[in-house]
Amino acid sequence: MRLAVIGAGAVGSAVVDLASDHGHSVTAFVDSSSAVIDSAGIDTDEVLDRKRADGVVGSDAPEDALSAEYDVLVEATPTTLGDAEPGFSHVQAALERDRHAVLANKGPVAERYADVRALERESEGSVLFEATVGGAMPILSTIDDFDPSHITAVRGVLNGTANFILSRMATEGLDYEHVLAEAQDLGVAEADPTFDVDGTDAALKGVIIANVLSDNETEYTLDDAEVEGIQEISGSALELARADGRTVRLIAEVVEGSVRVGPRLVPDNAPLAVSGTRNIAQLETEHAGQLNISGRGAGGPETASAVLADIGRL
């Protein structure tokens, strides 16, 4: 397949890096200010070196990328709320040209799911977005395999930064501010960790799951989610939980049409009590009991693997 990769950050660059391994070529690659377009396939190593050294991918005009030759558009620009732009327009441009769109960007499927599906219905192209929920973990494709109608609930730890902070606070007896600063030093938390610690990121993933489970009947957006973050969790609360064989995790819960994210008490030895940056999703299936999927929920190559798995499914 020929890929147009929009966004040259951790995810976009890793997709470009791993594309040839999976038998694909990259015909367009774009960041916020530059582009490289070649219908014969770009020299990925050279372009990635240039991005690292000079901060640009090439000297073509970014606006030409959407009309370049490609089979699949990979959307890896920053997740935005509300109108989900510019990601949404990129997906729209691909579908209107009957091309496929594979998303790492959560915005379009969390905030404008019905619009995306409507465009897909009119298109020869399909939309896949495994990478938007749980990085490398095959959560959405497992839901799809079981069929959404056989999944009654999904609960999970879907933000590695928040989980790192909570599990470290619990094991080391340190307070929130201290562990957050440490996570930033380690590169586990971004300079602005707001969306990770206030629950927004986990909620977007919960909303995407709710959209998939509702199978086009009801559309969910962030506004439909009940969201609470971990900023108020104190060391003493974790200590009390621990003395009782429990711990606190930021859990996203999608059940009976509701999406709820907040710190919850779970038994210390429960599958959901993963530690560090690990993620886990627990699917409640109608006929097969509980199914746990755990793994790395973020990271450039991890997320790119999910993108490439989607491309393989097209």
């Binding site: 609960r155 939980a241 606190v248 919850r264 008490l265 429960a270 959901l272």
Partner: peptide, 8 residues
């Protein structure tokens, strides 16, 4: 901080 499932 609520328990995850009824009964915890």
């Amino acid at each position: 901080i609520e328990p995850l499932a009824a009964g915890g």
